[in-house]
Design a protein around this nucleic acid. Structure first.
Lengths: 343, 343
DNA sequence: CTGAAAGCGCTTACAG
DNA sequence: CTGAAAGCGCTTACAG
């Protein structure tokens, strides 16, 4: 009795033998890479079917030097933002039979560089990077460029410009959020941002722009910051603010998670949403879970993933022409729910 | 001037030449697969460093017939449950330098089988499958077994038994949730489940067991079902229930998302949580976002991922002994927050 | 203790 | 229009 091997053993040779043709012909019918007569095509197909043959992509990758795999590096797949981008990338890549492997850094530089090594050893075709807040992103980027691996960046730091990247137009998004509030009659709007966050700084910029545009002067004391993107920090900060005599009728929270903390403090203070206080969030991650449902600026993560994949694929197809890197801005979209009043 | 190739070209041969040794020796120092004198090790290491050499894992995979890659098949990475399991798998696999590729099915059988083909062609070392609710899971499982690929199942249908699997002990979890409510003095507890869901049916079973155990008879009219795992469906169902004259003091929601809908309907009905109505959720996904914060049964997704990876790795190391498949049950954990009263 | 050589399963010029 | 053969970059018996 023949001993069972642990894995597959049907190879292109077996198919060729079974079909009575050369391996070159089998390869040609699988890849449609050159003309093969109908008769032979038929024989090959029958043999493939009979033997239950699955072409070995590893061998193909070695020969062609193209693994048809891209790496997506993120802080953590548990973050809904990255999960959304991931789906966008995977759906786009699936259409051209590319695989995508995920690498979580947990914001650790050590992990980031370890992953890059693995990625290189696996000879990926390209890398998509969301290395938010990692101190050494720039160093990582130069390394990847030095290694000559096509790269697209999603959510990059703003002061990078020699690489393709795609990012959220935080300024415009925040402008629109604030503009909306102002149009509804709100004049004193609290900006609730996060310390030491580039994203939050840009959203603050958009907030200010809206006032300028509408010809309304705004009160610097209405700009508040919490320590981190967390519900608890936002809750505490707002508690504090409600204890003070600061007056406002609306809150522009720089993230949904911040908005949730703020909503709790607001209700805790005996105020009603939206009757007493209107509130708008950003990201549109948890917005439909709150009570009342949170109006928020939706960030199109899925689309960003698709676009990033698109750009990368274009680079892979046309590796030779060193086009100047592009920076694509993606616009957040106002999604109205129940937390705003006015107009 | 030398033309730049697009990708890497430093190979083991280059290193061997640079170091003045054979490729076998280079291979040996990289893989520590046989003794090499200190002198040669040193030479090789220097050469690797000088040439900036990254071993080609694709070539290695072809030669050794082990790709060190596993596939994880899920409905959708956007679902926090799967994201959690994914991290568990990746963290475990990373320790042994395995890659994990993700495949989203969106509950589509067509996608499921297409992915399996891709996975086979990529010669993955093993598969972890969370093919929840897919009609043809069993067929997919037989296919994978026929192809002789090591397989571990997470979140499987219950009527499968010839394969390693790991699943949530829904009965015990629901028992504990209900038991807790009863111990706090609740006697009339509404079970809010989901139609046509195996998971929900098991949670209902646990709910009933708790009453039996405590020697309390329960009212069949307290068992309600909503159409799907959605906030809106739960909200509507509860609205309806509050319009009826059904009396209860607590709700056991079979999922956090169901609990959120129920909470909204409860507050809408002018009732207070937990003063008038206590409520407990399941999954512990969105539980800390609600107001008041939802007490919930935490499902250890991350740990499940780690365990699944562990089992798979064991199978990969010891492929020959066909141990009987194991079924590991994982216990949900009671996490108290603010939505319960009593005791 | 180390090296020369075969071979993993493909693709792709090259020849006819 | 199709086949024989080289070679992608490794690992691993085999020999010495």
């Amino acid at each position: 009795m023949e001993k069972k091997k642990r894995q597959f053993h049907v190879t292109i040779k077996d198919v060729a033998r079974e079909a009575g043709v050369s391996v070159a012909t089998v390869s040609a019918v699988i890849n449609k890479s050159r003309y093969v007569s109908d008769e032979l095509v038929d024989k090959v197909l029958k043999a493939i079917n009979k033997l239950d043959y699955y072409p070995n992509r590893v061998a193909r990758g070695l020969k062609t030097q193209r693994t048809h795999t891209v790496a997506y590096i993120i802080p953590d797949i548990n973050n809904l933002i990255f999960a959304g981008v991931t789906r966008g990338i995977q759906d786009r890549m699936e259409k051209v039979s590319y695989n995508v492997s995920l690498y979580n850094t947990d914001f650790s530089d050590k992990k980031l560089f370890r992953h890059i090594t693995t990625i290189v050893e696996n000879r990926v075709s390209g890398i998509i990077l969301s290395a938010w807040h990692s101190a050494k992103v720039k160093e990582a980027i130069s390394l990847i460029k030095k290694l000559n691996i096509p790269l697209v960046i999603v959510h990059s730091p703003r002061d990078i410009d020699d690489v393709d990247r795609i990012l959220v137009d935080d300024v415009k998004g925040a402008f629109e959020a604030t503009y909306n509030l102002i149009k509804r009659g709100h004049k004193r709007i609290l900006s609730l941002g996060v310390e030491n966050s580039t994203t939050s700084r840009l959203r603050e910029e958009g907030y200010k722009k809206a006032f300028t545009k509408m010809g309304i002067s705004f009160d610097e004391s209405l700009i508040a910051h919490v320590k981190s993107f967390s519900q608890e920090d936002a809750f505490c900060k707002m508690k504090e603010i409600y204890k003070s005599d600061l007056h406002f009728t609306a809150i522009f929270a720089h993230a949904d998670i911040i908005a949730i903390g703020a909503m709790k403090a607001t209700l805790d203070a005996g105020l009603k949403i939206p009757e007493d206080i209107s509130i708008i969030g950003f990201d549109d991650t948890y917005a439909s879970l709150t009570l009342p449902k949170l109006t928020s600026m939706h960030v199109p993560n899925y689309e960003m993933g698709k676009i990033a994949a698109d750009i990368l694929l274009k680079r892979l197809d046309l590796p030779l022409l060193p086009k100047s890197p592009k920076c694509k801005l993606v616009l957040p979209r106002f999604v109205e729910r129940e937390s705003l009043i006015g107009k």
